[in-house]
Nucleic acid binder design. Sequence first.
DNA 1: TTGTATGCGTTATCAC
DNA 2: GTGATAACGCATACAA
Lengths: 344, 344
Amino acid sequence: MSLLKDHITIYDIARRAGVSIATVSRVLTGKLNVKEETRDKVRKVIEECSYEPNLIARALCNRISNTIGLLVEELSNPFFVTICNEAEVFCTSVGYTLLFGIINSWQENETHLLHLIEKRQVDGFIFLGGKANLAQPKKSFLEEIKSVSQRLPLVFINSRIDFENCYIVRTDERMAFAKIIDYVLSCNHKKIGLITGERGFLITEEKIDVFKEKLSAENLEIRKEWIVSGQYLVESGAASMEKILALKERPTVVMCTNDTLAIGAIKQVFKSGLTVPGDISVTGFDDIFISRHFLPGITTMKQDYSQLAELGVKKILSHVSAENCPRETVLEAELIVRDSCRML
Amino acid sequence: MSLLKDHITIYDIARRAGVSIATVSRVLTGKLNVKEETRDKVRKVIEECSYEPNLIARALCNRISNTIGLLVEELSNPFFVTICNEAEVFCTSVGYTLLFGIINSWQENETHLLHLIEKRQVDGFIFLGGKANLAQPKKSFLEEIKSVSQRLPLVFINSRIDFENCYIVRTDERMAFAKIIDYVLSCNHKKIGLITGERGFLITEEKIDVFKEKLSAENLEIRKEWIVSGQYLVESGAASMEKILALKERPTVVMCTNDTLAIGAIKQVFKSGLTVPGDISVTGFDDIFISRHFLPGITTMKQDYSQLAELGVKKILSHVSAENCPRETVLEAELIVRDSCRML
DNA sequence: TTGTATGCGTTATCAC
DNA sequence: GTGATAACGCATACAA
């Protein structure tokens, strides 16, 4: 068979309403003036036929698709998916639709994926994770970004890319990590360890920087063997904690640069016959969904997911409608105290 | 400003290659014959201009958008998002793009959301959760579905809607739940409780049915107070377990109709000062990501997410290309034994 | 093998 | 106010 979706078009409506397609189009868009009488007549026919305009045709004509590309590192990542969910909901509420591109499934070809989606004439792109979040993005990647940004507005979430037509929405992760360090200090911890994911990413490097700064400022010892980096995986968090537990002298608290690592770290502590926070405290970052339900509940920092998403979309909308909007918006994070870090 | 993305078109390519647009189109689609010489010439120009065809225009022309609507109950649900992720990856690998619609954000208006997406001329729809998964969908909803199915192919995941142009990909949940019950029985449990989410959904009702059937067959007691229903939320799982723990006589194992409930149930056991599986065993269903990492690891059933997703997409592709494909495909689930259910 | 012309369903610029 | 008509970018039937 074939999908003979031969839809009703404005021609059908025009004919049945005894007007021209131009008039139908006018009542559809609602911009130009139409005599109330004819407008009602047309509306009635539209209703009767349950006609819906073909958005593909409209997009071709307007050269605006009401569509935004969202390049996300990985949908199964709980941090990213929360933002995607919020973004999607907000988009549909304003008549937009997101086209997702999942970066990880394309290995090195993040750029190729981008072109694939650009062919669908999206009005802009949002970047969530991927190479854009490297502390030092590669030259070739930046060139590509710059090139695309000459055609379309780009929004980077938790990144720092700075070109014409590029916007940024981000959490102030330096301040956020400083906040949770302060909390840890306020619990009288003096021996503090750090578990991170991949080096080279902003979310990693900034936290390491702040970690060292704060500890120095407090005259606390920064021990190399108490800082261990791996990947942003549960297994990696566990492996890192294993290394720390094997040390002759251990920190009293281990801070993790995200909750996934914290989960792995906690698991490993229990596996070693110790407990969290009894024998060692652990903190996370991001407040992913499960952190509240994990045992023990994870003390962490919560980012403002809905704002991150909504502002990202809004910046593109503003750009499209030629409104002014700040190039960068920085959001605060919130400390969420639960059970995984105890007072000494 | 305005997004003057005045792109290169086939006209530009045609001019620069000294051929007609028809020829350019031919080498682009690759279907019809073009002399090798001219084809190479055109290809070279395309390359030089880094021209990319406008998929919106192509869709309008072909009346096929290479786009599929995916109506999903909630992206933040770990079960659904896994399938979405797989579906998205598979789609892009075959030149398709998914348009997501998040049902929960539209309350009762699942149908309205559907129309919103249909306007974008998707080639088909996939339903993941929502009203389609009710054991007895409402008449009005079925009417709508039937109506849409006359225009587009529809795929239902883990559902049973049976109309023309409607396809089904599902896990055999009856068999799957029977399997995990068998496992529980093999652990010598005789006193078995059940925690479910919302009544009325297939995933709930089928499991309750199987539960009763199996226990009867084993001559085990089916106690009303050991079967407690709530919502598919962690909190609800906890509340249900609280009720069970308050009973004078308790089951030795509580089976949950999904992992989210199991997590809540386990939390509640620990909160009561008891342990899982020491004092009471718990099982889940779905094997969501965190189940492997929870403490204790949750014994559960794993659905074949990638097949669920891929077959869903494939059925639509087959329909579009007029190939034959079975109306319904049923998949098996796999028992995942971890630590939350112990041998008595 | 290649080019011309038409249609896909809209919107928008003209006249009237 | 309203109605022809020309884009929008592409694919294809038909002619050459």
